[in-house]
């Protein structure tokens, strides 16, 4: 009766009877059966640029989230933040792969992640800002997840079938990221005097970077409504600060991106073509 134990019952699913692995079965490839040819109606260069920007956003934030490992306030939070970072890294890989198929260069995922410099990255500046304290990090995650969820929900019906499949996969992940971050923003905003003050400071510090994310986007109202709902429950004001000029999407970045990339890329650049 191995069904008495959740892990053993899962291992039952393996034909070779190998019960050492405590993972589930039935994994799915989100791109299984999706036609990778670019439809005639789609502008390939525009599609590639969009995949690159969305991939860069996710890669840089995944790196920031990974920086919390060994530094998070609780073991459980460390796992949560690392899991979310890995979700974003998974999205990045699919988006880079699509970019390589459509921008005419045929580059691999690694070429985009490891062999471009800061000025070639198209991420918004919000994701490259240093982690700050836990309040700053969960607020940024909330804003990012709200925006990306709204955007991916639209992209799930995009004319390019690959981008649509990537977005549909991402929607489920981002819904959880938003829930996780929203619970923490409410908990801290509506918590102690200290936690409330830290949330206020985080709002002031990062609100100037929001507009860049929301600008030129149909889902803007939806994102703001989401944020408003969470901030209200947290007892926090909606910040009204002027947006910072410049666009990370144009390659104009803060001084924080280059050091982040230097760490991210150091091994790949020291040992190009290495496999493991």
């Amino acid at each position: 009766m191995s069904e008495d134990h959740v892990y053993l019952s899962l291992a039952d699913g393996h034909d070779d009877g190998d019960a050492r692995w405590a993972f589930g079965t039935g994994f799915e490839d989100p791109l299984h059966g999706v036609d990778t040819a670019v439809p005639d109606t789609v502008d390939a260069a525009g599609l590639a640029a969009r995949c690159l920007a969305l991939g860069d956003d996710a890669l840089v934030l995944a790196q920031r989230l990974a920086e919390w490992v060994t530094r998070a306030p609780e073991l459980e939070e460390e796992m949560a933040l690392a899991n979310i970072g890995l979700d974003l890294l998974g999205q990045t890989r699919l988006l880079y792969a699509r970019c390589g198929q459509t921008d005419g260069t045929g580059r691999t995922e690694d070429a985009y992640a490891y062999f471009r410099d800061a000025a070639d990255f198209r991420n918004v500046r919000l994701v490259e800002l240093p982690n700050g304290d836990f309040a700053f990090s969960v607020l940024r995650l909330l804003v990012f997840a709200c925006w990306r969820l709204a955007h991916f929900t639209e992209l799930a019906s995009a004319p390019d079938p690959v981008l649509a499949a990537i977005a549909a996969k991402g929607v489920k992940e981002l819904t959880y990221h938003r829930q996780y971050a929203a619970e923490w923003v409410v908990r801290l905003g509506d918590g102690t005097q200290e936690s409330h003050a830290r949330m206020l400071a985080a709002l002031e510090a990062q609100a100037p970077y929001w507009e860049e994310l929301f600008a030129a986007h149909d889902a803007r109202d939806k994102v703001l409504a989401d944020l408003h709902q969470v901030l209200e429950a947290a007892g926090l004001p909606m910040p009204s600060v002027p947006p910072l000029p410049g666009q990370g999407r144009d390659g104009e970045h803060t001084g924080h991106l280059a050091p982040l990339l230097a760490e991210l890329q150091s091994v790949a650049r020291a040992h190009p073509e290495a496999t493991w």
């Binding site: 892990y7 993972f23 899991n83």
Partner: peptide, 8 residues
């Protein structure tokens, strides 16, 4: 996050 991340 701790107990269902491998599809359990």
């Amino acid at each position: 996050d701790l107990y269902t991340r491998r599809n359990e």
